[in-house]
Design a protein around this nucleic acid. Structure first.
Lengths: 350, 350
DNA sequence: TACTTTTACACAATCGATTACGCTAAATTC
DNA sequence: GAATTTAGCGTAATCGATTGTGTAAAAGTA
């Protein structure tokens, strides 16, 4: 006993499929279907437990009412929170989400984009790992709606929604410097052509410059994004045993920071006395470690919300605008930015 | 210039759609299409940048190669990690995931199930909020493949994959008791008909019984799942100011525990000296708070993996088995289970 | 040569829903 | 009573891919 289709309803009622379709789409009145007939159709629908087939409708209408979401890792709370908000907003507009993790793999990402297009998703939201934006240029040429989040490809001039990475990094680094710390390691993540990472590095560099300090390039390190837990301890060990022992860390994301914390605990390095630490990207954990970790907080939900909103607009209007949304970040001062600040906090707490 | 279809290829080559379809599906040889013709087809495909339309294929074949995933909150790291693993395994089998958050709303969940079926997803994985399993009985009757995760509906006898909640809770509670704590609050979460919560409560009760202690029902509290941050402080305030002041907490999930920690920090209640604490569900944060928080760790990735594996099997075979997978949990002892344990740890660390 | 088999492909139905267009019978108008 | 309108609905094409059936031509066989 297979699932009933519109045809079954029509046949069993002796009317046409057209009529049934009209009634089902609430267009019975405007198409002059008598109330009585409409009632009968709906009755039959209930009786046969008919449910429309979205796939068939999608084929006919040329749209799937589905949005594709590609992030590097859905289990990173940063992306998980974005995903949640995107889903909420999309659901309000009757759109559903197919999500995929690229695992920070350029080629897999392209593969995923291809696959999502074959699935006829009406638009995509992507946190990209691409180095060059060729794939996106193609999409643009086809007027295919998409929005980049978090990571931008500035040359591309495509829809984008992210945060002011430069300022965030600048503020963080400046804060450390103002607290008397100057041997500040910058822990980046691979691949280092990502706009977010580059901008954060620029912020870091600018802060040094503005404070009249020279940068020691040995303190700028790149961690393999797929091997954080293993590499961070190695790198940190190096950084604290070398001649110019670091006195602070600016970490570009939450995963690296967590790995740093782990290292500190194990090696009994005290924050903030032995080591200053500020993280880009604020997570719950930073409020509960001792001391609490200062961080640059991103307006995560806003990113997701802005991204869907732009996408929905593009999908509707079929226009090809170029929205570039850069949201401000917030410096959350806790007790990890160096001894001076730490003492101030202690005082003001009493 | 719309996207090319199989028809365009066929027409421009003067062959039939059938032929093109065969070639595209690697069934050219078995259908006796000459090598030369096959070559020409593939050439044309590349030239026109043809991409198959998954929707159309889905309609014809009656399957969408898509799995629906419903969880209560994708931004909870527990579900995010499960989702990640599910996606990984599904991707290997060429399945994609549509995910939805029910927001712990029974009716929204039913709505989502209906929607996913209309979208012709081939199977579902669900962490359900349903009180009675009527909707799932219906699915079973139709031989529709689905797997419940985390939360079970025992009467239903449907595919399920989760952990041994009873033992986990028993171990945790027993540990607290053995450490001399006896006024142990149980912080549950609404809705309290969930199998996970019920089993955890049973474990808690059994531990009391086995230790010859009586349970004080006033110490068992339910927190509204959508209002954790607000309710936990209120409840805890009550529990510590009443006559029988609690000396420990067993919290049924990570969100509640985090809220508890927040309360402790703010009220300067020291763990473990002033208060023992064990959490069901281990998260990163618990390794970094001071002291570290003991927790019952679930094999999260295994849950996801087992769930998809079962689902894929069912979708293939169209059989209707009844897999009931209960995975063991692990008690992660850290320094929060009471003073005795804590002192032992301090000693053994030196 | 006559018949059979194989090769290589085409035709048309099908999946389920939508929609431009057109038809019929009844009601209304002149 | 003929012409026109309109309410009410049906026909058939369409979306893109798959597949059972059909068939002409080439090749093989006796």
């Amino acid at each position: 006993m297979k699932k009933p289709s519109i045809k079954d309803i029509a046949d069993s009622l002796g009317v046409s499929k057209t009529l049934v379709s009209f009634v089902l789409n609430n267009r019975g009145d405007e198409n002059g279907i008598s109330k009585e007939t409409q009632r009968k159709v709906l009755e039959k629908v209930a009786q046969l437990k008919y449910h429309p087939n979205f796939i068939a409708r999608g084929l006919r209408l040329g749209r799937s009412h589905t949005i594709g979401l590609i992030v590097t890792d859905i289990s990173n709370i940063f992306y998980a929170r974005i995903a949640k908000r995107i889903e909420e907003v999309a659901a309000k507009h009757k759109y559903n989400l197919i999500y995929c993790s690229s695992g920070e793999d350029e080629f897999r990402e392209i593969e995923l984009i291809r696959m999502l297009r074959e699935r006829q998703v009406d638009g995509m939201i992507i946190s990209t790992t691409q180095k060059n934006g060729r794939i996106f240029s193609e999409l643009k040429k086809e007027h295919y709606p998409f929005v980049l989040i978090d990571r931008n490809l500035p040359k591309l001039k495509a829809n984008y929604c992210g945060v002011d990475n430069f300022s965030g990094a600048y503020t963080a680094t400046d804060k450390l410097i103002k607290n008397g710390l100057s041997k500040i390691a910058l822990l980046k993540i691979s691949p280092d052509y990502l706009s977010t990472i580059k901008n954060r590095e620029q912020g870091y560099r600018k802060a040094f410059k503005d404070n009249g300090l020279r940068i020691n390039n040995k303190l700028i390190r790149t961690i393999d994004c797929n091997n954080i837990k293993q590499e961070v301890p190695v790198v940190l060990q190096e950084l604290i045993s070398s001649n110019d022992r670091i006195d602070a860390i600016f970490s570009v994301n939450n995963s690296i920071t967590v790995a740093c914390l782990e290292f500190m605990y194990e090696n009994n390095i005290k924050i903030p006395d032995d080591m200053g630490l500020i993280s880009f990207d604020d997570i719950d954990l930073f409020s509960f470690s001792i001391p609490k970790i200062s961080a640059i907080a991103q307006p995560i939900e806003e990113i997701g919300e802005a991204a869907v909103t732009i996408l929905l607009e593009e999908m509707d209007s079929k226009t090809n605008n170029n929205h570039q949304v850069t949201l401000p970040v917030k410096f959350i001062q806790r007790g990890s930015c160096g001894t001076i600040v730490e003492k101030q906090i202690k005082l003001s707490n009493n």
